[in-house]
């Protein structure tokens, strides 16, 4: 069985001190150990941004993709080998700006993958530009007069896109994050986890304190995660109080369930070269 140390690598970590990514990394390692997964059966798929270094820091299979393309890559890995546990990692810019075209489709397609969005409401690696989840009025290099646009609401978007598992957690609440992550990985279908994550270098507003003062746990407030209506209502809550937890979950057949070929098991393990080509060619004779 693995322990957390086995999941480390020799690569020196270059995240800024106090970066929320540390919390996510430690939670992911802990959950891998707790779920008794092996290194070879997990695939970490990362996008471009500070979170993208993740694949260097965790000793499991990984693919560091290009900006915004975590979801199509992760989707295809899962469809090619349904025996793997596929976890996608993306930043808020990655997920909701450049990669937005994939997001609602991944939600409705319901491929059995977990999608962790490192949401720090800022572009960190490119040194501090406004992100699609930056709050209205937020000042950055690219919005010196303050962000005019209201932010994307990842949870509401996932819900209206028919996602089957919609959750939010906060890196300041590690136990909560572990719980949500375990539930997400165990969920059969597409699972979104929006992780509130301070960026101490570039986002001076949404700090640990900012969130500590506001977050409360849905699990402790009698929220019914089976209710779509309640989930939508909670998804709209922000400002003074910010809910974290599992907003919504639903059992729905996954994309692979509808694929006749995948009923026979993992695609990569199926025989190759046994197609009756003569029969196929016969259609044309």
């Amino acid at each position: 069985m693995l322990n957390v140390k086995d999941l480390g690598t020799i690569v020196k970590n270059t995240w800024c001190p106090g970066c929320g990514n540390f919390g996510i990394l430690s939670s992911v390692k802990q959950v891998i150990v707790d779920l008794e997964l092996t290194r070879e059966e997990i695939v970490a798929v990362t996008g471009i941004g500070c979170h993208g270094k993740f694949t260097d820091y965790v000793n499991v299979n990984g693919i560091h993709t290009i900006h915004g393309r975590v979801l199509p890559v992760a989707t295809a890995i899962k469809l090619s080998n349904i025996d793997l546990t596929v976890i996608g990692f993306a930043g808020d810019g990655d997920a909701f700006n450049i990669g937005m075209g994939h997001f609602p489709h991944a939600c409705r397609r319901n491929v059995d993958i977990t999608y962790i969005v490192h949401n720090n409401q800022i572009y960190g690696l490119t040194t501090g530009q406004t992100s699609p989840t930056s709050m209205q009025g937020y000042k950055s290099k690219t919005t010196p007069r303050g962000n005019q646009d209201p932010p994307i609401n990842p949870l509401a978007l996932a819900l209206t896109s028919n996602a089957t598992f919609v959750a939010r957690t906060f890196v300041g609440e590690l136990k909560h994050m572990n719980m949500v992550l375990k539930e997400a990985i165990n969920h059969r279908g597409f699972a979104l986890i929006d992780v509130l994550q301070p960026c101490p270098s570039w986002n001076r507003i949404n700090s640990y304190k900012y969130y500590m003062d506001r977050v409360y746990k849905l699990e402790e407030s009698g929220h019914d995660a089976e209710s779509f209506t309640d989930a939508c209502e909670k998804a709209r809550e922000w400002d003074d109080k910010i809910p974290i937890g599992i907003f919504y979950r639903e059992d729905r057949p996954t994309y692979s369930d509808g694929m006749p070929t995948l009923k026979k098991g993992a695609l990569v393990k199926q025989p190759v070269g046994d197609v009756d080509l003569k029969k196929l060619l016969g259609e044309y004779s």
Binding site: T65, A76, N81, H105, M259, L267
Partner: peptide
């Protein structure tokens, strides 16, 4: 699809199509 034992799909864009192709190949098919 069934006779050939393939997974064939129409994704949301050509960007998704090629990234899926890379993902599937990475997995070994």
């Amino acid at each position: 699809e069934e006779e050939t034992g393939m997974v064939v799909l129409q994704p949301e864009s050509e960007i998704a199509a090629i990234c899926m192709t890379v993902g599937a190949s990475f997995a070994g098919v």
